[in-house]
Write a protein that binds this DNA or RNA. Sequence first.
DNA 1: GGGAATGCCTAATGGCCATAGGCTGTCGGC
DNA 2: GCCGACAGCCTATGGCCATTAGGCATTCCC
Lengths: 192, 192
Amino acid sequence: MERAALTTAAVVADAAALADQAGFDAVTLSAVARRLGVRAPSLYSHVRDREALLDGITALALGELAERIAAAIAGRAGRPALEAFATAHREFALQAPGRWQSLQRRAGEIAVRSGGARQMVTLTRAVLRGYPVPQDQHVHAVRVLGSTINGYLALERSGGFNHSAPSPELSWHKTVQALDALLNSWPTGNPS
Amino acid sequence: MERAALTTAAVVADAAALADQAGFDAVTLSAVARRLGVRAPSLYSHVRDREALLDGITALALGELAERIAAAIAGRAGRPALEAFATAHREFALQAPGRWQSLQRRAGEIAVRSGGARQMVTLTRAVLRGYPVPQDQHVHAVRVLGSTINGYLALERSGGFNHSAPSPELSWHKTVQALDALLNSWPTGNPS
DNA sequence: GGGAATGCCTAATGGCCATAGGCTGTCGGC
DNA sequence: GCCGACAGCCTATGGCCATTAGGCATTCCC
């Protein structure tokens, strides 16, 4: 019996793969152990508990998403940058649904410390540089952007669009277009 | 031993209360049974299985939210209506976190059929009537609105704002303001 | 008063997380 | 080349959960 050479990273990676295949909720220590040809308790040498495993997936996903986004918006500004930013999000959600799902929960210590979150904020701000949004409004704009993009993908994923007509594709385009328009004329004062 | 007079509705209502107190994930047949002073298997007379129970909560929450929104936007139009619409959402999320959480998942048969979903769409369209958004764009606008509001509340709830400065309150206001501006100048053509 | 239906119960199965403690092969020090 | 420590996996166990099967009492209608 060869040593399986398990490491924390390997366990987390396999768990992430399982999440993509069977859904985030299907990520269970037992299931991962089965996939790795090992008994469940053995995993506790590499992972503190289930929560830590899930948090590890979150950290991994955060890093991967940041990487994709960085590559996507490099060399772009303004609307093209925004579109690349949004598309990177959406493709990540579609291609790695389990990992994406792992981002939609209260992040634990590991994930927060991993720096991926900070990186995401930095990247979002980079997109904003191409728009006439004043510095002191950036935080708000970052939040609106994150809310809308994540919210849209969550709705799409949970089937919120299955019962009305036009394709999600079309609405997605309109949504990004709307965000572009919004950033271009960011409301500053207190207009009545 | 008095007959507890359990009904499907009573079980679902108690489950919803539990969800608000302990989180949606804490809604377990065992826990609900304990609260009702009954053994877990007894609940199967009223509820098909756990999934049906959760779906029941979703249907209940959908109806309650629609009711709140209807009351909030009655007699208002334009920006006040939008603000009332958004506020109703947020207050629901803050006051009934478990019920709100139940809306953030793939809805099952019961919830879909309950008509609450359709009612929500109708109410959102009602808000749009106060804005110069062309009819054929309403679907998209409904989706953008839903995405942003839900997305914001999800982010707020999952602590996404805990690590940066300004209060969520402020950003929330800015977000609603931004949506107002967006609807007022909804991008129609294909502006380059 | 009898019988069926209603509504709760106990018993039992199987899955999951988690802890405790045991076994084995590998490797550094001598 | 031997020995002890340690790394890394194992079995055994306990507790909680969902779900099914089958039993017992109360109620209500005839």
